[in-house]
Design a protein around this nucleic acid. Structure first.
Lengths: 188, 188
DNA sequence: CCGCATTGAGACATCAGTGTCTCATTCGGG
DNA sequence: CCCGAATGAGACACTGATGTCTCAATGCGG
């Protein structure tokens, strides 16, 4: 039952990542169950989306833990973070755009906690002198979300190779497009 | 009439930018006309969205023209471009996410043209030695879209000051978060 | 083998949004 | 001033999705 629920949740995530307007029928079919059973797990579409949000938050926090944001150079922590969060990027992209709809009304405070930890990471990088100080931590956090979503879509549509996902995002976020005097090492 | 249509289109853009699921009623009300009149201008919701897409494409191409992408350093061209496209960023964000739904089926070829010109700009920067070559032009183009959308939302929700929009996007896209040995000039 | 629980299939009512229509009103140019 | 075009208000039918319900079939443990 609990396992079932998790399986349903994950296939729903996979489907809605691709087609964010998918029907309850489609979600049920994707999970290999009937619509009736789907309704037995999740009271309705809202409940499903909220469960997906909880899943996304949980995966984010797991990635935050796995990346050990406090250890070592902030840049390396960012790289570990993106690598850890990559499998959830599609779900994140879905939730990121979905959240643009719930304008104003109380957003899940789980996101706030995650935002805080990301912001703290970027601030740590600034205070250690690794990161420039003219880009606010809030903006860097927002940009990270945006790049994760763009990356997930670009990969989904074949415009970027799946293998390059982490590298492309991390390098752009940290190093930007401009070529610097001291070339950076290419690390896959 | 033609003026009317344009006014309707622009208020629809402004509304849908904020609430992408707004009803035809709401769109009509936002434009200060009745739903009947709205239907006289646009056959249906699809037609409205397609018209908005055309508007977005037109504004993008106008910005591409205004930015004179072929002139001067590619980095400066990017800066001019973002500055020129800033007013349309909200509409772009709407269309960008909207397009994730039209999965596969023929997307407007206007976007292809715009993509090509952006890609060409980044490639020019690479060939002139300004930009690094390990980030593909296709990814830089995608990332630009993502950052424009993130920026528009961040500004809309007050997480980033509207004045910083262009600077934040351009600096992150070109320079990244990492601090370089030779500090860059801050240009507002 | 039996009984209980879960499931799938489908019927059903409901609801929101849409698209079409009518009709009275308003507005502007001739 | 008057006529025609455009508009607003609203009624209407239709569609698609949703949520609820029933019932038969399946399956599993005792």
């Amino acid at each position: 039952m609990a396992l079932d629920r998790d399986h349903v949740l994950r296939s729903a995530a996979a489907l809605l990542t691709r087609k964010s307007t998918a029907t309850m029928d489609e979600v049920a079919k994707a999970a290999g169950i009937s619509r009736a059973t789907l309704h037995r797990h999740f009271a309705g579409r809202d409940a499903l989306v909220r469960a997906l949000e909880a899943l996304g938050i949980a995966e984010c926090e797991a990635a935050l833990e796995a990346a050990r944001l406090d250890e070592g150079p902030a840049a390396e922590a960012v790289r570990r973070l993106v690598r850890a969060i990559e499998p959830a990027a599609g779900l994140l992209a879905f939730l990121y755009t979905e959240n643009q709809l719930f304008e104003g009304d109380g957003q899940n405070q789980g996101w706030t906690r995650i935002d805080d930890r990301l912001t703290a990471l970027f601030r740590r990088g600034q205070e250690s002198g690794e990161f420039r100080i003219d880009l606010t931590p809030a903006w860097l956090t927002e940009a990270l979300y945006g790049l994760l979503a763009s990356g997930a879509w670009a990969v989904a549509e074949g415009r970027v190779a799946a293998n390059d996902f982490t590298y492309m995002i991390v390098e752009l976020l940290l190093g930007g497009a401009r070529r610097t005097d001291t070339p950076r090492r290419k690390e896959s």
